[in-house]
């Protein structure tokens, strides 16, 4: 049976509030925030039906969603592990050892950059400067910034995420009901 793509009532209510933040007829402006919500609701990635659903909420053509989702690096167009480990690889982080961090994770999880562990728990990705170079090297998982990373801290972090086993997305579910305006 094919999966039904529909936001939960709470997320749908948030999406409707966000759409109202833009002038009449300009609801397409809500596309980026809605894509973050879709990624949160639909297992951390944007399948074609997930994007079609977003298009229907905004009353725009699916192609308008695809062309935007494919432009921005935060939108996953393929399934990802429950925890997407994003290691900053830009100059300042790299000067302070980001390379060692990436190699350590690759060895520890036995995957290469861009790959997912067989249990579906982790995907490793490198990303560009996360605006936190003062506490380099930086790793982002979901909404959390892990700062001043070392190989030991990476081990702790991975164990922690693995033992909890939760999916982490950039828009964290705990905020869905936060803002009512």
């Amino acid at each position: 049976m094919s999966k039904e793509y529909k936001f939960s009532d709470e997320t749908l209510a948030l999406a409707q509030r966000i759409i109202k933040r833009y002038p009449e007829g300009k609801q397409k402006s809500a596309l980026l925030p809605l894509l973050h919500l879709a990624q949160m609701e639909f297992d951390g990635w944007l399948s074609a039906p997930a994007m079609d659903y977003v298009a229907s909420l905004l009353k725009i053509q699916p192609i308008e969603v695809y062309e935007v989702a494919s432009f921005y690096t935060m939108f996953n167009l393929k399934p990802a592990g429950k925890c997407l480990i994003e290691v900053c690889r830009t100059g300042p982080c790299w000067l302070l050892g980001a390379e060692d961090i990436v190699k350590h994770i690759e060895k520890k999880l036995n995957i290469k950059e861009g790959e997912t562990t067989p249990d579906g728990m982790f995907t490793l990705k490198t990303v560009e400067c996360l605006a936190a170079c003062g506490t380099a090297p930086i790793i982002q998982v979901g909404e959390t910034y892990h700062e001043n990373m070392t190989c030991e801290k990476v081990d702790e972090m991975l164990n922690d995420y693995k033992s909890k086993g939760e999916r982490k997305t950039h828009f964290d579910k705990k905020h869905v009901n936060a803002n009512q305006h």
Binding site: H36, Y72, M74, Q140, E143, T144, H170, F171
Partner: peptide, 8 residues
């Protein structure tokens, strides 16, 4: 977008 925690 990476700063969603600051967004909140």
């Amino acid at each position: 977008g990476e700063l969603l925690y600051v967004y909140h």
